[in-house]
Write a protein that binds this DNA or RNA. Structure first.
Length: 862
RNA sequence: GCCCGCGUGGUGGAAUGGUAGACACAGGGGACUUAAAAUCCCUAGGCGCAUGCCGUGCCGGUUCGAGUCCGGCCGCGGGCACCA
């Protein structure tokens, strides 16, 4: 009997699949199609074990669907534009293109030995001119359709490097390279009109039955539909043209608790005052030194500037409220102006206490529920109960005294509309998608700026507008910050496609989210001369199962949903693909402990796992220094807690790596990589191989144990099938452990054992395809196990006659009784009451209550 | 700060509101071996001699029955629009 030798069998079967074109996807009318897609990787350099887990999950689905008679599309590509390539170029005098394609080659080389059932003939990278040229064609169609426009927007500006920074590149308000204080600066940029689709993107979430509820909730909150009141305060002593300040509020019922009006530093009135008043200019400048991220605005200390302007309360013109410029108000949301009601908003309360503004409670807990309620004006916290809760209005102006917030808001809007104070309006939090990036390594925006004609689209026959590799014969210099396209005259200076006069190309490139918003559609016809081929899109779309990280729950998935709608409007996708992903699964990360020590300055120094020795729950370096263990952190190169799958594959084989990443942890949860776990997976596969070999060699005649083994086999088929169908890969694997154990102990005859072992091979084939092929061949299976139809469980073999029912006394288990499955409730009750534990507990008394759940449990209440 | 999750033995985890800890790792014991490796078998939440008691982050609630449902905390993670 041969030993389990993954290093020999894995390349052998990979070659067999290649030669048979087993995983080549071609349209086959009459066969149901299945499109399974894992979110494509960024080519960061090398694959890590998290990639292995992600792609193995997709592969299990792909192989299983093939076995159940589907024509499967399972492609792979690379999300290849983006900042890291430029950073690498800056750091090493290289070129983003060379770095990126080098990484892609490496990663493909690392992925191929995993034995994934991918149709590699469809592979592309988003930085291929073939791909981004088609993306430019889409952009031009969107432009024509009115789905793209230009407006001003703020960016993080590094005044020393004279460059735009990503939020990630801003650390504590300073540029990551220069250390200069970052400023907010306005630039004219391109935007997709995603907010026009807000309502549709929100409503359509309801139809996504096979998406995780949490993702739909996150998207719904992000889109953020709200109903509120929009009205204007009239101002006193404001500059000309600002006699009204429009505000939007979702809590008009708190109007009588208003104590100030706040406007964004980017509000037109704030900008007007800035021109007239140095103090305002200084305050606004300080606000603009903050980054552009919402997180930073929300967590920053709340600051305001009293403009000296006041407004009249709409219900009482003698009541004046001060107008503050406040750093936490976003110009992008609502009208860029609010009224503050400190009693019922923690942020407004913090602000009011800081600037000694009045606090007036509008509503309090309902009668009888006051508890320890302390009025906000007496030092209590802001009172913000759920809107569905009934509260007592101390200052009602519409509706009853006791109402829920929801009812009060409706009443307030109705009252205001009747009295000519504003209108009820619906607003969305979702903003338009700014796609301009002032960077080189992205898809060029295919327009030309002409002094006479304005913005002129590039002609489609001139696409792709390719990125220049050299600059006048010399390699582009990436050591200088900023956008090389902007300082590249021979690329930038062109003639206007419309009038022929000297003009300039747009030097901004597209957000990389654009690249990943339609790659799934391109996979259906990766070589088409238009963005998609309708016949292919009709056949292969939608993605039946999309798999990726929860970190993409909002942006990527929302943008892709928008793009699919826009591609349908411009004739690039069928109607059904407005929602492109029928089912979504969000998998967890692979984590690993971090090993760290501190340097003299107290900064952490990280160590690779292979440089650390573990002894009695402590870790030491080779020189004996004790190492701090930080458990379960997301793998990242900089923390040195990465596990290189190549080493695992070399040491144990791909099947072990695949088996391990699927076992133990449920796929949606994070999994901790441990060396011991990989060792155990490897041992188990060796055991399976030995058992299969023994079964193949067995000469025992039909034995006593045939029926129990086959019954167990059918139950296993059922459970494993259900496990894979429901993404319960860990449960399926646990079941396979059990069946392997049953098989190894079985005294069945040779035929039954071989049948059981062949079935085991089939059930394992999605997870450990190479071992499964080897077993299949050894056990006399026909053709490739990859081509064999999935086994079907025989229901009649799974029926049990009796059932074990636990007996509880007052909800605690005190015994059990084995009864025929169909036994009547009354009989079960009688049996339970005669159980010695029940007799003892009752001690002659009669039970207060007996609950019998047929087939499940008996509970006796004494 | 806001939105969304998660929290169960020494460890990863299992459990349609119905026997908490399946399956696996590490541990303990044993078999085989001159010995070791490999392999196989047994054992195993905590406390207790035991009838038993306690136990799913913490506090409270609903229920005949709660890891599961509800409310409030604590801790950890993801996202917050220019990281991908």
């Amino acid at each position: 009997m041969s030993r389990y030798a993954p290093a020999e069998i894995e390349p052998k079967w990979q070659k067999a699949w290649d030669e048979a074109l087993t995983f080549r996807a071609e349209r086959k009318d009459g066969k149901p199609k299945y499109y399974v897609l894992e979110m494509f990787p960024y080519p960061s350099g090398r694959i890590h074990i998290g990639h292995v887990r992600n792609y193995t999950m997709g592969d299990v689905v792909a192989r299983y669907k093939r076995a159940t008679g589907h024509n499967v599309l399972h492609p792979m590509g690379f999300d290849a534009f983006g900042m890291p390539a430029e950073n690498a170029a800056m750091a090493s005098d290289g070129h983003p293109k060379d770095w990126t394609y080098g990484n892609i080659d490496t990663m493909v080389e690392q992925m191929k030995p995993l034995g994934l059932s991918i149709d590699w003939s469809r592979m592309f990278a988003t930085c291929d001119p073939d791909y981004y040229g088609q993306q430019q064609a889409l952009f031009l169609d969107f432009l024509e359709q009115g789905l793209v426009y230009r407006k001003n927007a703020v960016v993080n500006w590094d005044p020393v490097d004279m460059t735009v920074l990503a939020n990630e590149q801003v650390e504590d308000g300073r540029g990551w390279r220069s250390g200069a204080l970052v400023e907010r600066r306005e630039l004219t940029q391109w935007f997709f009109r995603i907010s026009d689709f807000a309502e549709d993107l929100l409503e359509a979430l309801d139809g996504l039955d096979d998406w995780p509820a949490k993702v739909k909730t996150m998207q719904a909150n992000w889109i953020g539909r709200s109903r509120g009141l929009q009205f204007a305060f009239s101002t006193i002593d404001a500059p000309e043209g600002h006699d009204r300040i429009e505000v939007y509020t979702t809590r008009p019922d708190t109007l009588l608790g208003a104590s100030f009006v706040g406007i964004s530093p980017d509000h037109p009135l704030a900008k007007q005052l800035e021109r007239e008043n140095e103090e305002v200019a200084a305050f606004n400048a300080e606000c603009r030194r903050m980054g552009t991220s919402e997180e930073e605005l929300e967590t920053a200390e709340k600051k305001g500037f009293d403009t000296g302007i006041t407004v009249r309360h709409p219900f009482d013109t003698s009541w004046e409220l001060p107008v503050y410029i406040a750093n936490f108000i976003l110009m992008d949301y609502g009208t860029g102006a609010i009224f503050g009601c400190p009693a019922h908003d923690p942020r407004d309360l913090e602000f009011a206490r800081k600037y000694e503004l009045p606090v007036q409670t509008v509503f309090a807990p309902a009668m009888g529920e006051e508890g320890t309620f302390i009025l906000p004006e007496d030092g209590g916290p802001a009172y913000v109960p759920p809107k569905v809760e009934t509260v007592r209005y101390l200052k009602p102006f519409a509706g009853e005294e006791a109402m829920t917030g929801d009812v009060a808001i409706d009443a307030a809007i109705a009252f205001c509309e009747e009295n000519g104070v504003g209108q009820g309006v619906t607003k969305f939090r979702l903003r338009d998608w700014g796609l301009s990036r002032q960077r080189y390594w992205g898809c060029p925006i295919p327009v030309i700026h002409c002094e006479t004609c304005g913005v002129v689209p590039e002609k489609k026959e001139n696409l792709p507008v390719t990125l220049p590799y050299d600059e006048d014969g010399k390699p582009i210099d990436f050591s200088v910050p900023g956008n090389p396209l902007d300082r590249h005259p021979s690329w930038r200076d062109v003639s206007c496609p419309s009038c022929g006069a000297a003009a300039r190309r747009e030097t901004d490139t597209m957000d990389t989210f654009v690249d990943s918003s339609w790659y799934f559609a391109r996979f259906t016809a990766p070589k088409a001369e238009t963005p998609t081929d309708m016949a292919d899109a009709e056949y292969w779309m939608n993605v039946d199962q999309y798999i990726g990280g929860i970190e993409h729950a909002i942006l990527h998935l929302l943008y892709a949903r928008f793009f699919s709608r826009a591609m349908h409007l411009t004739g690039h996708l069928p109607e059904k693909s407005r929602e492109p992903f029928d089912a979504l699964f969000t998998q967890g990360m692979v984590t690993h402990a971090i090993f760290q020590t501190k340097d003299k300055a107290g900064r952490p120094v990280f160590h690779f796992p292979e440089d650390v020795e573990l002894r009695d729950n402590s870790a030491f370096l080779k020189d004996g220094t004790e190492v701090e263990i930080v458990p379960s952190a997301k793998m990242s190169k900089s923390k040195k807690n990465v596990v290189d799958p190549v080493e695992i594959v070399t040491q144990y084989g791909a099947d072990t790596a695949r088996w391990f990443v699927l076992s133990d942890s449920p796929p949606e949860r994070d999994v901790e990589w441990t060396a011991a776990g990989a060792e155990a997976a490897s041992k188990h596969l060796g055991r399976v191989w030995r058992i299969a070999s023994e079964a193949a060699a067995s000469e025992a005649a039909s034995g006593e144990g045939d029926e129990p083994l086959l019954r167990e086999m059918h139950k296993t088929i059922h459970d494993v099938t259900q496990g894979i169908d429901s993404f319960g890969f860990n449960a399926a694997i646990a079941r396979l452990y059990g069946f392997t154990s049953t098989l190894s102990k079985s005294d069945a005859g040779a035929d039954a054992k071989r049948q059981a072992a062949r079935t085991l091979a089939q059930l394992m084939s999605p997870m450990t395809p190479h071992l499964a092929e080897e077993m299949w061949a050894t056990l006399g299976g026909e053709g490739l196990v990859a081509d064999a139809p999935w086994p079907v469980a025989d229901e009649s073999m799974m029926v049990e006659d009796t059932v074990t029912m636990p007996i509880q006394i007052n909800g605690k288990r005190r015994g059990e009784v084995v009864v025929p499955k169909e036994m009547e409730k009354a009989e079960v009750e009688e049996l339970a009451l005669s159980h010695h534990a029940v007799l003892k507990a009752l001690d002659g008394a009669s039970p207060k209550k007996v609950i019998v759940v047929p087939g499940r449990i008996v509970n006796v209440v004494v």
